[in-house]
Design a protein around this nucleic acid. Structure first.
Lengths: 149, 149
DNA sequence: TTACTTGCAAAGGTTTTGCGACGTT
DNA sequence: AACGTCGCAAAACCTTTGCAAGTAA
């Protein structure tokens, strides 16, 4: 029994192929896991998801793939302050992250005014901006009834 | 021969004392090293500077102090993408960092418009902003003569 | 076939920790 | 005296890598 999605190469798999990478079974699966992820998994988590599809994938290969994918720019690495790298597919859009300090939930956002400010600041300091990274740490505003403060 | 500055407790030393921490010689020296740092040293570098003042300080103690100081909020930890934590004293001011990707130089900056945008974004997403962190990676704009492009 | 990729296990770099001794309060 | 702190060395963690075997092109 073959699941239908195995037939369609993932966005990342296509990106790999375009760059002439050898498409091994492992690479394909890791690419698919990343393409299908809606969150920001760490390496261990990518490994878990990949191993669930094919147990014959080693952690070393996942590490190697993440590094490779990042180097060729098809995924992005993030640091959300928990000591390990977190990844997501590099789609075209430029966005930042707001991390809920109570749940760890990550919300992505984008803001033109912010972009403008950052570009302006870099130029003002005498730099061409190559990259940027903003994380906001916050706590969800509760709008329950009044608590006896 | 006693250097005059040994007599004056550093800003961080005072902050420690205020919170009732035991002021050991090591703690005092590490606090002073951090208070006097104008850059963003990593733990190894703080260790080097502290050991230069008193060789009887261990790396473990520096690690323990950094963690402690960070927990009580008197220093700030940063990640500039080089794999280890970098620190600076938490002065009152809120600022961000621009990292020169060619030299590693770190420029601090502050910008009201940026702050306003970030606060607005957090609120708009339904969060109270607890903290934020922005790093811009850039390359210095050269204004030499035209190069044969 | 050839060059790239893999798995395994060992090693690397950073940070933490158990423990007995020591120092501050 | 009591408790926190220290140094040392071991270990925990995440990540990288050497090597021999396997595989895509």
């Amino acid at each position: 029994m073959t699941t239908p999605e195995e037939a369609l190469p993932s966005r990342l798999e296509r990106a790999c192929a375009e760059r002439g990478l050898k498409m091994t079974g492992q690479r394909r699966i890791i690419a698919r896991v990343l393409s299908e992820a809606a969150d920001h998994p760490d390496v261990e988590e990518v490994y878990r998801r990949a191993a669930a599809i094919d147990a014959g994938i080693s952690l070393a290969t996942v590490y190697r793939s993440m590094r490779l994918f990042e180097e060729i720019g098809i995924i992005q690495r993030h640091d959300f302050g928990d000591g390990r790298a977190r990844y997501e597919e590099a789609r075209g859009d430029h966005h930042h992250h707001l991390i809920d300090i109570e749940t760890g939930e990550v919300v992505e956002f984008q803001d033109p005014e912010l972009e403008a400010a950052v570009t302006r600041i870099a130029r003002h300091l005498g730099f061409d901006m190559i990259g940027q990274r903003l994380e906001i740490f916050g706590r969800r505003i509760q709008r329950k009834g009044p608590e006896t403060a």
